[in-house]
Design a protein around this nucleic acid. Structure first.
Lengths: 344, 344
DNA sequence: CGTTAGCACTCATGGACATGGAGTGCTAAC
DNA sequence: GTTAGCACTCCATGTCCATGAGTGCTAACG
């Protein structure tokens, strides 16, 4: 893989990303001044094809980068289009302005990302189970139903209605609430382990209440199915020539509509923190073989709490996408961390 | 408009709804036993076209119902495919099982509707401003921020974070919460008018709190932008041959993505309660000229609180859609009403 | 030996044109 | 009022061909 091959691969990829047309040797020679003739480039391109970096849709068409080609482009060739500090500041402000309601921030993050990149944006909201509990509030609805409102550190509010096994009066509930708060504040639902629950059990006077408590917590922690996925700019998919075919677009949209599938795919990918690029057949799911994703994790303090990203065709403007996704994740992390009350 | 014309219009509409192909006189004569020859039918169809009930995509193609034709079909010809009591019972159960969390019920309603009809379902969640307040809970987050949780009668839970103008200790907050509950429970946010607020002002001891109260309520009542619209089965649109063209599908989806626009259109349409059919150019918005909607309002007690409906091509199976939407709205209303605690 | 010019070959694309079929409108006969 | 017959229209489909972009190969060049 000599330097000239690399420059040619870069030229082919850049051009294909812009035009969506297979690119031929003439085009390269004309538009990208490599100082060699088309014939030479043809030879090099032939080699690159043999090496697996380029593909031909059919004989006598131009070349197109393969997944491997894109991978090399992303890892080695691409320079990642730095994002200015003004833009970063703008992003922080945008989030700070919506600081009060977590859900709005998440929505807004998706919107910003899709507007910035013109790709479909996807944001996975923080798992409640991994952020510290700030407050747990129990409110009676009637004799048999209790509203449990859980506020976790970055300001994420979640509520569950719990149907009691047996009636409970308001005073008892109040007391239970107090106790629970004392025990739980500052811990993440994940940290609430068996040992803690046992101690709690011993302490709670009406033993009967214990079961309720467990149910409540299980609901809250076990609500990983509530790991919500937000989309924005789904329409941008249709702007891509590769999705002009309705069948193809339908298949992809159908997959994206399945929240659980997307969420599990994303959590698989974002096991490693930081910005991640996943290209075509690297995806675990067939529906995504024609797509690429650029994702980044965001965090509160040191803990990764969620993922943001964009979905587009493999012919994606990786440099723009990587920097935008990165900047957004950074800003989001920053604001969320700032919002978090350090435990006293 | 003699009876035979009506039968022919019905036949044309039925056939076109099934096949999506312009229907000719031969087809009518063959498939629908009217006992007359194609030639006769041709004459009648020519008349129907003159009257504006049918249209020809081009000379020497079959006929297709016009918007006016569909309107007549819906108002006069169609028999609305009764839905059995078992299905209604199923629906009620489905909702009852999710009785605890309003948002899940709404989601589920959209899902059920799109599965039943194979059209895109849309559900507008109850405006909080029109359902009675069951409970208002104020919870301190820190010195300057309060979490206000509003529970309205059918079990709709909504939360707002309020940033205070000046710090307030927990005890004061507690007292304020008590007072507010006494005043507000049983009323709808809409009923909370100026007079009531005045009386409240006089009663509250630290006058400063008054402003906070107003802000809180204004947020809650004024959150008509929070009149959420839920979709399900957007993909079904692509199954319709009329949306095989990506541009057309994009235009429609783009419109549906604008929550406010859709919500205002729906509230316009569902001013009259009950089941409503809106056909093609009857829509206020150009993006919907090629579509029809079947909508119905649902209610708690006697008050209309929201809308359910389906969106499809004008060539829609109106009879199925009307009965499905109607049944769903009924079941939803029933369960919601049942859930509502009658004020003591 | 790498580079280049030349040339034959391949293949997708799009326009021109013929063909078939579905459907209409009209007229005349029943 | 209804029907059969017929000429006419128009879309959809398929074929053919010209065009052009691009390749691979070979032979010449420095």
């Amino acid at each position: 893989m000599d330097p000239r091959k690399m420059r040619i691969l870069q030229a082919v990829t850049d051009d294909y990303i812009n035009t969506a047309e297979p690119v031929g040797s003439r085009t390269i020679a004309r538009k990208y001044g490599l100082g060699v003739s088309p014939a030479t480039i043809r030879n090099e391109m032939s080699d690159l094809e043999e090496l697996g970096y380029l593909e031909q849709p059919h004989t006598s068409a131009g070349r197109v980068p393969s997944d491997k080609g894109y991978r090399f482009y992303v890892d080695v060739l691409m320079d990642p289009a730095e994002i200015g500090p003004e833009v970063r500041a703008r992003l922080r402000e945008e989030f700070a302005a919506r600081r009060q309601v977590m859900e709005q921030m998440i929505h807004h993050a998706a919107r910003l990302l899709s507007v910035m990149t013109h790709y479909t944006a996807v944001v996975v909201a923080p798992k409640t189970s991994e952020t510290a509990i700030r407050r747990l509030q129990l409110t009676p609805l009637d004799e048999m139903n209790v509203l449990a409102v859980l506020v976790t550190e970055p300001g994420f509010v979640e509520h569950h209605v719990i149907e009691l096994a047996s009636p409970m009066d308001e005073a008892t509930l109040q007391k239970l609430g107090q106790r629970l708060n004392d025990y739980l504040v500052g811990k993440t639902p994940k940290e609430v382990n068996r040992g803690l629950l046992e101690r709690l059990r011993e302490d709670l006077e009406p033993k009967r209440l214990y079961d309720e408590t467990v149910e409540l917590l299980m609901r809250s922690v076990g609500s990983r199915c509530e790991e919500r996925v937000y989309f924005d700019g789904t329409l941008h998919l249709f702007e891509q020539p590769e999705f002009r075919d309705v069948e193809r677009a339908k298949a992809l949209l159908g997959f994206l509509e399945q929240e659980e599938a997307v969420s599990s795919m994303l959590s698989e990918i974002s096991r490693r923190s930081g910005t991640q690029v996943t290209i075509g057949h690297e995806h675990p799911r067939e529906e995504m073989y024609e797509c690429s994703m650029v994702t980044a994790t965001y965090h509160v303090g040191g803990t990764v709490v969620g993922t943001v990203g964009v979905v587009g065709p493999t012919r994606m403007e990786y440099s723009k996408a990587v920097s935008a996704v990165g900047a957004l994740a950074d800003s989001l992390s920053e604001v969320l961390t700032q919002m978090t009350r350090r435990p006293a």
